[in-house]
């Protein structure tokens, strides 16, 4: 488990406060190695330039939405199997299906607790192994 906690997580959301919220929740779950991006384009650049182990992305963002980011990640040769957790709001549950079809690793509905977030991450990491 301890190895898992060291993974580098990229949090993508255009709303800075939201990034902070997620960062705090991640810290509560023991994840310390966190980096942020404010939209899909920035995230994609970061993914290509730095070593990221896990992506948590909001759906609705300017420039490049979460689903576009997901599709871009999945169609990338090197990033194709990147664990990808989509953050969504309850009113957008229909979008979840779209995300799932696009190959999202899992999704999480706002608002969520640190425990739920931790569980989702653990589950995704387990499945990869």
């Amino acid at each position: 488990m301890d190895v898992n906690k060291k993974i580098k997580i990229l949090v993508v959301d255009d709303f800075a406060t939201m990034r902070k919220v997620i960062r705090n929740l991640l810290k509560q779950s023991g994840y310390e190695n966190i980096t942020e991006a404010e939209d899909g384009v920035v995230a994609m650049n970061m993914l290509k330039s730095t070593k990221i182990d896990f992506v948590i992305s909001d759906w609705n963002m300017p420039n490049m939405t979460g689903i576009e980011l997901l599709k871009a990640v999945r169609s990338d040769n090197e990033l194709g199997s990147m664990p990808f957790l989509m953050v969504t709001a309850e009113s957008l549950k229909d979008n979840v299906v779209e995300a799932v079809k696009a190959g999202v690793s899992n999704y999480i509905v706002k608002p969520f607790t640190a425990e739920v977030l931790g569980e989702k991450i653990d589950k995704i990491l387990e499945n990869i192994k």
């Binding site: 255009d14 709303f15 609705n60 963002m61 953050v87 706002k110 608002p111």
Partner: peptide, 11 residues
Amino acid sequence: RPFHSIKGVAS
């Protein structure tokens, strides 16, 4: 988008 973001954080 802004409404959405506000809703998310407010929740």
